[in-house]
Structures are given as structure tokens and as C-alpha cells.
Amino acid sequence: MLAQDLLVLLREWWKIGRKQGVMHPDGWLFPGQHYLKPVSTRHIHRIAAEAAHAAGITKRVGPHTLRHSFATHLLEDGVDVRIIQVLLGHAQLQTTTLYTRVATRTVKAVVSPLDRLGMFPASQGSPPG
């Protein structure tokens, strides 16, 4: 899933790079040491770690952290876990549900079906008993 704003930015990156001669027509959008080879996974990991450090994040961060955060944000925004399963390319729903344990805002937002009945008005405090 690619955000439309990011797609516009990447297209502009490509156009400017081509005009300046730094992007080869047959090369990669993010080339490695040679324009016909993509940037290495090791370098991507290093970029993520450096960005986290620059942002003041002290925990260990890598590309998978971004994927995990993406899934967690979608869950917290109410996106169905089966949709997230498809977006992440998981074959089994069980793999996707691992992300639900960290979506604490989603868990806290769940309202008990008993509370939905409105049997005990909130202004009266606890039910007698």
C-alpha cells in the first residue's frame, strides 16, 4: 500500500534525478553501489537505524519495525485484521493477530456489551450491591 502523497513525491524524485543525470533510465529508483543493482537490505537497515537515532529513539529499530508500526496503526484506526492480513501478505490470520497484542489503544477502546445496554447511568457511579 503506497500513499498517494508518497507516490507523487517518488515520481518527482525520479523526474528530477533523470534530468540531473543521477538516475539511469534502466536503473533502480533507489540504486545500490551500481545503478543496475538495488540498494542492499543491509544499507536499508542502516538507514532505518540512523533515522531512529536522529529522532531520539533509543530502542533497536529496523525496517521490520516500520512494518510492525504500520500494522499496529491500522489496527488502532479500526481497520479489520483480515484487511491488514492481505496488506502484509500473511497466509494465515494467526500471523497477523500477533500485532493485536501491541495495539493497546484498540483494546482499551472496546466497550463491554453490558455497558452498551445503559442499565447503569454513568452519573450514578457504581451499581448498588
Rank of each mutant, 00 (worst) to 15 (best):
P63M: 09
A3R: 15
L9I: 13
G129A: 14
L36P: 02
L114Y: 09
S69I: 08
L29S: 03
T65Q: 04
M1S: 13
G129Q: 11
V61Q: 00
M23G: 02
M119H: 14
L36M: 12
L114S: 07
A91G: 05
V39D: 00
S112D: 07
G17K: 07
L9C: 13
F70M: 07
F120Y: 10
W13P: 04
P113G: 02
I16P: 00
T65W: 05
P63N: 07
L88M: 07
H45K: 13
L87S: 01
S112P: 00
T72K: 05
D80K: 09
D5M: 10
L93C: 07
G118I: 02
A54D: 09
E76F: 03
R82Q: 08
L36Y: 07
K59Y: 04
V81F: 04
W28S: 05
Q85Y: 04
H34D: 11
V111C: 07
G89I: 02
G32N: 03
P113W: 01
T106P: 03
A122T: 12
K108C: 06
V61M: 04
L114R: 07
G17V: 04
L36F: 11
I47Q: 00
R46S: 11
G32E: 04
A51N: 04
Q85H: 03
K15A: 15
V110M: 13
Q20L: 14
W13A: 10
Q33N: 14
T58I: 10
A3Y: 10
K59M: 06
A71G: 06
G118Y: 00
Q33G: 14
A109M: 10
G62T: 05
K108Q: 12
L2Y: 06
H53V: 14
T58K: 14
M119F: 14
A55E: 09
V110G: 05
T96P: 00
I44L: 11
G27E: 01
F30D: 07
L117M: 08
G89E: 02
L87Q: 04
L2K: 10
S126T: 11
A54E: 11
R42C: 09
E12C: 13
V79L: 08
Q92L: 12
P128Y: 09
A52S: 09
A48H: 03
R60N: 09
Q20Y: 12
T65H: 06
T100E: 03
A71H: 00
R42P: 01
L74G: 00
T96G: 02
T106L: 15
M119L: 15
V22S: 12
L87M: 10
D26F: 11
Q85F: 03
H73A: 08
V79K: 01
V102K: 06
D115E: 13
H90D: 04
P25S: 05
L29P: 02
I16S: 12
P128H: 10
G21V: 01
D77H: 13
G56M: 06
E50F: 09
Q124K: 14
H53Y: 15
G27V: 01
I47T: 00
Y35G: 02
L88K: 05
V79D: 01
E50R: 15
E50G: 06
A52I: 00
G17F: 08
A103V: 06
F30A: 08
H64M: 06
V8R: 14
V61N: 00
L93G: 08
T96D: 00
T65C: 11
V8A: 14
L74F: 01
V61L: 02
T72A: 03
